[in-house]
């Protein structure tokens, strides 16, 4: 055997063709890792962050594919990729938000493999999808041999790399609420190079009646151990405070950690600026790039 560019620790690989086979395999090995798009798992294995004895490649499980849209919800199968959403797999304002958000993730080769569900499972604190999930109270559907359960994003996402997923569980889908035809959506992100991870990302979906904000969803990634819904900022908006008040209030929603290249104060400031900018864009039609 020769030298290969990828040097993971030894593991067994199974490639189930059905959901049941996948769940059986996961049940048999509590330390198994699920392989979806592989854009984070392979890197972790290569770095030997952990050494799962078994890798369960769910890429061939038909039940995990596809987007299902009904009146109130959009259900993203666990194999729905960033690129599917970027290319408009979901209709309406929710689809617009997902497409805009996808465009901020990494670069095209990674978007063509990485999955929405995998991103939530990996739970990077600055991952764009976690901000969407938090903002919209996404419902994470988990399955195991023992049965099914559904958790809202706020309960599923715990901290950097940590979630409520139990051994043997597979995310089979993530469900998002359909947004009304009049919902305005947007993303504001700050990062250092075009290909780098977000420093802070803010997603917003806002409904107005006249000048009044009647519904608001704000999610912030990169400013706490995991993405959060910005309840205080939403409150300020619903109280009629406008973008500036929401920006002031978002400080209560976040809890940044120090970065080698950004201290906590700066990150707090960035989150506030992004909240203000994205809301100005949505509410005032101010199209200044955020």
């Amino acid at each position: 055997m020769g030298w290969g560019p990828v040097k993971p620790p030894p593991f067994d690989l199974v490639q189930p063709g059905t959901l049941v086979e996948a769940l059986v395999a996961l049940d048999a090995e509590p330390d198994a890792a699920v392989l979806a798009g592989g854009q984070s798992l392979l890197q972790d294995l290569r770095w030997r962050r952990f050494a799962p004895p078994l890798v369960v490649d769910v890429g061939g499980v038909a039940e995990l594919r596809g987007v299902t849209v009904d009146d109130d919800t959009v259900r993203l199968g666990a194999l729905v990729r960033h690129v599917d959403l970027e290319r408009g797999a979901v209709p309406g304002p929710l689809g617009t938000l997902l497409a805009e958000t996808a465009g901020w993730i990494a670069h095209p080769p990674i978007r063509s493999r990485g999955t929405f569900a995998g991103s939530l499972a990996w739970a990077h604190p600055a991952a764009e999808w976690t901000a969407v999930a938090a903002a919209l109270d996404a419902q994470v559907e988990l399955a195991s041999r023992a049965g099914y359960r559904t958790l809202p994003a706020a309960e599923f996402l715990h901290g950097p790399g940590a979630t409520a997923r139990r051994p043997g569980e597979l995310i089979i889908a993530v469900t998002l609420p359909v947004l009304g035809e009049g919902t305005a959506t947007g993303v504001a992100e700050h990062r250092r190079t075009h290909a780098s991870f977000a420093h802070v990302a803010v997603v917003a979906a806002v409904d107005t009646e006249g000048d009044e904000v009647v519904r608001a969803h704000l999610g912030v990634a990169g400013a706490a151990p995991t993405a959060r819904r910005a309840h205080a900022a939403e409150e300020a908006l619903l109280d009629g405070g406008g973008p500036a008040a929401a920006a002031d209030a978002v400080g209560e929603d976040i809890d940044p950690v120090e970065h080698p290249h950004a201290d906590v104060d700066y990150t707090r400031h960035v989150a506030a600026v992004l909240v203000r900018r994205v809301l100005e864009r949505l509410l005032d039609g101010d199209r200044e790039a955020a």
């Binding site: 055997m1 020769g2 030298w3 290969g4 040097k7 993971p8 620790p9 030894p10 030997r48």
Partner: peptide, 12 residues
């Protein structure tokens, strides 16, 4: 070792 994988296994 025979290959880099095994070499890293042992290095660990």
């Amino acid at each position: 070792a025979d290959d880099r994988h095994r070499a890293e296994d042992a290095a660990g």
